[in-house]
């Protein structure tokens, strides 16, 4: 299926993405366990190193650059666990993907009333 190439701005998590993002996603998946959440909080870089993340991947995670994490193959369902450890609303992650201000994103994409 080649939908990724035909639907604008809509990356599908296909073979290439799954391979590319394997390390980031594996690291994020592990945050489902309390012991790993504690390790992440105690020393984030050491935790990321233990999953063999590249410098580029580490930088994206440590900078909470959601757009970049997805570009590197991170799948939102896995990397969302980072937002559980370091709380970030999913709409802010969405706004970052869309390169929009959060308020604009809520209004223009999700149809919420401004200031409402």
């Amino acid at each position: 299926m080649s939908a990724a190439a035909t639907i604008p701005d809509t990356p599908l998590f296909d073979r290439a993405g799954s391979i590319r993002g394997y390390r980031i996603n594996k690291m994020a998946m592990a945050l489902g366990q309390p012991v790993n959440r504690a390790a992440f909080k105690a020393d984030e870089e050491a935790y990321l190193d233990s999953f063999g993340l590249s410098a580029e991947e580490k930088s994206a995670v440590m900078g909470r650059d959601w757009h970049e994490m997805v570009r590197l193959g991170g799948n939102l369902f896995f990397i969302l666990k980072i937002s559980a450890v370091d709380p970030t609303p999913i709409t802010r992650i969405g706004a970052a993907q869309a390169s929009m201000e959060h308020e604009d994103f809520l209004h223009l994409r999700l149809g919420k009333k401004r200031n409402g």
């Binding site: 639907i7 604008p8 701005d9 809509t10 990356p11 998590f13 997805v70 799948n75 939102l76 369902f77 999913i90 709409t91 992650i93 969405g94 706004a95 993907q97 869309a98 390169s99 994103f105 994409r109 999700l110 149809g111």
Partner: peptide, 12 residues
């Protein structure tokens, strides 16, 4: 849609 630049897409 949660990912990509089209994130937030809703088609009522």
């Amino acid at each position: 849609q949660l990912q990509g630049a089209r994130a937030g897409f809703i088609n009522q």
